[in-house]
């Protein structure tokens, strides 16, 4: 019988620790599929964050650096400068990349660092138990915004992909989502494109991936998918923001 579905080669067989209904595992798988398809498993060095994805090295079978909170783009810069011919990418959550690590991501992009950053945005701090994230949307209830995010008190969500698109060092950036099959397929295409931009030495590339967090949103998985669609996508419109060095919108 023909095998039509199997674990990507660059994935380990370790069971994932992610909560039920969390789409993080989908993202890890998509990246592994792209690594396999591009045939770069032996040439890839990944850099992980602090946050829910802190154990992502358990699931990817590639050389790996565990960075401190927010600093993955700096660590990746160090790696890439030593190994300019390897594929270097980071996986970072919203707190990691858009709060504590804002400096590192902006300057890695501004330098046109030839790395790829994958930014998982679930609009909440998952690992620490549901606190407000830099990407929590207005009125969103979290453990540190119990009455909902109030723009007069704590301001607005950070739109990192839009911010990075205007930097000359950014060759490619896009926002995708993995809340349904159509978007998952689109996300994979975009992740692949971001890696190709790096392989072609065009410059910095980033993919923001909207992801669910049923546990900390306090919703059943199916409701979480709807919440993402109704609350996150209006705030964080999907699409390519920079292609071939041209700002798209």
């Amino acid at each position: 019988m023909e095998k039509v579905f199997t674990r990507p080669k660059s994935m380990t067989d370790k069971p994932m620790h992610f909560c039920p209904g969390c789409t993080h595992g989908v993202i890890q798988r998509l990246v592994a599929e792209v690594i396999d398809e591009l045939g770069i498993q032996e040439d890839t060095i990944a850099v992980g964050p602090v946050g829910c994805a802190v154990f992502c090295y358990d699931y990817w079978d590639v050389d790996f650096h565990q960075a401190s909170h927010g600093r993955a783009p700096a660590v990746a810069t160090g790696v890439k400068r030593v190994h300019p011919d390897k594929v270097v990418f980071t996986l970072q959550g919203d707190g990691d990349i858009a709060a504590i690590g804002t400096t590192e991501i902006i300057h890695a992009a501004a330098r046109g660092e030839k790395i790829t950053c994958l930014f998982v945005n679930n609009s909440i701090y998952g690992m620490t138990g549901g606190q407000m994230a830099p990407t929590s949307v207005l009125s969103q209830k979290t453990t540190t915004t119990p009455a909902g995010r109030d723009k007069n008190q704590i301001g607005y969500p950070v739109k990192l992909t839009e911010m990075l698109a205007v930097l000359d060092g950014t060759a490619y950036c896009a926002r995708v989502s993995v809340h349904n099959p159509a978007n998952i397929l689109k996300a994979k295409e975009v992740i692949r494109k971001a890696f190709e931009v790096q392989l072609n030495k065009e410059g910095f590339s980033l993919v923001e991936i909207l992801s669910t967090c049923p546990t900390n949103w306090g919703l059943p998985p199916v409701e979480a998918v709807k919440w993402l669609e109704n609350n996150m996508i209006p705030c964080f419109p999907l699409g390519e923001y920079k292609v071939a060095g041209e700002v798209q919108r």
Partner: peptide, 12 residues
Amino acid sequence: SAINMVFGASGS
């Protein structure tokens, strides 16, 4: 950032 770049380069 500098010390984290050192981390990346050293680990490499």
